[in-house]
């Protein structure tokens, strides 16, 4: 116990500071969530009674989120984008894990640093550089050959690629860390028992990596779902949820339907957080 500072008053002050810090941490989240249940057209005090209209209300002025077509569309696009980013990044992350832990790649350290780099480039820059590059290719093809490649114009494909460009670093780091801890004698035992390479990969190595792959996939899904900076520059007419919500927030004067969405999203991330904790607990048990 490091209670070296001795006197009780100091410790009490310290505890109060911690309490204040935790209030600071949750206050905005509570504010964002709680007004979803306020029976008023403004997300502010005074409290006018409990309602679920901001979720299920069917008509203006109390149009609930489950009947707001633009919000639902945003939710759908975000979901599609996040799922694609997550699948792509887990795949690439797994390949990178084998590349950096198992292969005899020359200049491994150099490539490792290159792999980490996208995480330190500001998201805004990733967004504009990919926008510029894709547009240049699209314009060149259009001008010289008359080929119009629609997916190179701002839209879902570019958003997925933009988010993938740095999410892949996160998944690679997570899965690589797990593979480094793998006990290779397990594979050797399987080879000795007559298993083929593919069989060993399928029934020993990949199951061992699965908790890390699931956890990385969940993190990738969330990071993608919540991403704003990179998405902002690459978005076309199909706006994901964050962009739709931002537009309404920046205009101000929105109804508590945004609080309902916030509450919904917080619950969603909560569930994902619990799943990823359970998956990782499984990892320590083994």
């Amino acid at each position: 116990m490091a209670r070296r500072s001795g006197n009780q008053a100091f410790l009490l002050g310290y505890r109060l500071y911690m309490a204040a810090f935790f209030i600071f941490l949750v206050a905005p989240l509570i504010a964002a969530g709680i007004f979803a249940f306020n029976d008023s057209v403004f997300p502010s005090l005074p409290w006018k009674g409990f309602t679920l209209d901001w979720f299920f209300g069917t008509s203006e002025p109390k149009l609930g989120m489950f009947h707001d077509r633009r919000l639902l569309q945003g939710l759908y696009y975000s979901f599609v984008i996040a799922l694609s980013v997550s699948a792509l990044s887990v795949f690439v992350g797994t390949c990178n894990a084998f590349l950096f832990v198992r292969s005899n790649l020359p200049a491994k350290n150099f490539f490792y640093i290159i792999m980490v780099l996208p995480l330190v480039i500001p998201g805004v820059i990733l967004g504009i550089s990919i926008l510029v590059f894709a547009s240049t290719i699209a314009n060149t093809l259009d001008d010289s050959y008359g080929i119009d490649l629609d997916f190179l114009r701002p839209g879902i494909v570019l958003v997925v690629l933009g988010q993938f460009s740095f999410v892949a670093t996160i998944t690679s780091l997570v899965i690589t860390a797990r593979l480094r801890k793998f006990d290779e004698t397990m594979e050797e035992a399987a080879y000795n028992l007559g298993a083929s390479r593919a069989r060993v990969l399928r029934s020993i190595t990949l199951p061992y990596l699965r908790p890390a792959m699931i956890a990385a996939g969940i993190v990738a899904f969330l990071v993608s779902f919540e991403n704003f900076n990179t998405t902002l520059f690459l978005v076309g007419s199909e706006s994901p949820l964050t962009i739709t919500m931002f537009d309404r927030m920046a205009k101000g004067g929105s109804t508590p339907v945004l609080n309902a969405v916030s509450f919904f999203l917080m619950m969603g991330s909560g569930v994902l957080a619990i799943i990823s904790i359970l998956v990782q607990r499984d990892r320590t048990a083994r």
Partner: peptide, 26 residues
């Protein structure tokens, strides 16, 4: 507990601060 905000998007966190700090806010 410290990690909770990580699971909530930037947008919602900023929105929470708007609701706390604005003229008609908490």
């Amino acid at each position: 507990f410290c990690l909770i905000p990580l699971w909530v998007s930037d947008l919602i966190r900023a929105f929470g601060w708007i609701l706390l700090l604005r003229e008609t806010g908490v």
